[in-house]
Computed example of a mutant assay.
Amino acid sequence: MGPISLLVSLDQAYLPQLQVLLTSLYLNNPGERFDLYLLHSGIPAQALAPVTQQCLWLQYRLYPILMEEQLFADAPTTKQYPREMYYRLLAGTVLPRQLNRILYLDPDILVINPLRPLWELDLGTHLFAAAAHTGKTELANSVNRIRLGTHHDYYNSGVLLMNLEECRRSISAEQIFRYVAEHEKEMLLPDQDILNALYGKRILPLDDVLWNYDARNYNTYRLASAGQHDLNWVLQHTAILHFCGRAKPWKPGYFYRFGVLYLHYAQITTRHFPTASSASVSRP
């Protein structure tokens, strides 16, 4: 089996969370090889050193890619809409041409079961595979359909299996920049709104309880499954726990159920990779 290619895009402040993600990935995907592509705007090599060392120890290959400013010369950017919001959708333009698929993960994620079944999913001519967080309330989906003029569920952009060959054919920076310029006053979650408005019709739906579990919504998932998706079920079956929203388990006051599990992996990371100190893990 070949390696699984992963994509992350983040700034320096999220490097400790990336290390926790890597720890969870390693412990719950035994024997797998991973190639990690990191899109960034200029993280110093010294700051990236802990991740570099961890990848060496895990025997993962790390490929940092500095995103050139000139690629975004025509991009509408503000404090609310930084240029980083474009990176994942335009990844096909900067990633090696021999890559035909990649799995994007937000850094606020734990991987607690194997990713291979997702990696091997047949995408056909879809651009992406993604999950909608439909369990909490259908009202949010309805509001987003009206707001964006779409007819499909509102997909979360934190986990994207990307068909890079189709992305290179079908996604253009000009189209994205034009959409943002025309709709910037209407957008609430910019990168996610762009994904849904422009490309939602070409997204293959994933089951969020398996591949993009909203860690805030344990009770909702359990009720929707008539009690089947209890804690044991999640630990045995869910592959990706996503700590969505403003509340984060590495910040004080996090009260959702899976916060202690996150702190467990953070502690393992700190114990085995001293440069990822407990102080840095608690940074915002």
Rank of each mutant, 00 (worst) to 15 (best):
E184Q: 09
A129T: 08
S225W: 00
Y213T: 06
M187K: 05
Y154N: 02
N217Q: 11
N141L: 11
A129Q: 00
H152G: 00
T220S: 08
R97S: 15
G124Q: 02
R101V: 03
N141Q: 15
D153S: 13
R216Q: 14
A215M: 01
P96N: 01
V111M: 05
L161C: 14
G158H: 01
F177W: 07
L189M: 15
L115V: 09
A130W: 08
L115F: 11
I102T: 03
G200W: 00
Y179I: 11
L103N: 15
A129D: 01
N163P: 04
E120I: 02
D214A: 01
D193I: 05
I146T: 11
M187D: 12
R97V: 08
G158D: 04
F128V: 06
A130F: 07
L118E: 07
R101Q: 09
D122P: 13
L95V: 10
S172N: 07
D191Q: 02
R116M: 05
R97E: 15
A226P: 09
L121K: 02
A224C: 13
S170Y: 06
Y179G: 10
D106K: 09
V180G: 04
H183M: 03
A129R: 01
H133I: 11
N212M: 06
L148N: 03
P117Q: 02
T125H: 14
A226F: 08
H229P: 07
I203K: 01
N100C: 11
D207K: 11
L123I: 05
I146P: 07
L188C: 10
D208Q: 04
R222A: 10
A173T: 04
K185P: 11
I109T: 03
Y221I: 09
L198G: 13
N100K: 07
R101E: 05
T134K: 08
E186V: 11
A173M: 02
N196M: 02
T137L: 10
R168Y: 05
R168C: 02
V159E: 06
S170Q: 15
I102P: 00
L127A: 00
T93C: 10
E182I: 13
R222T: 03
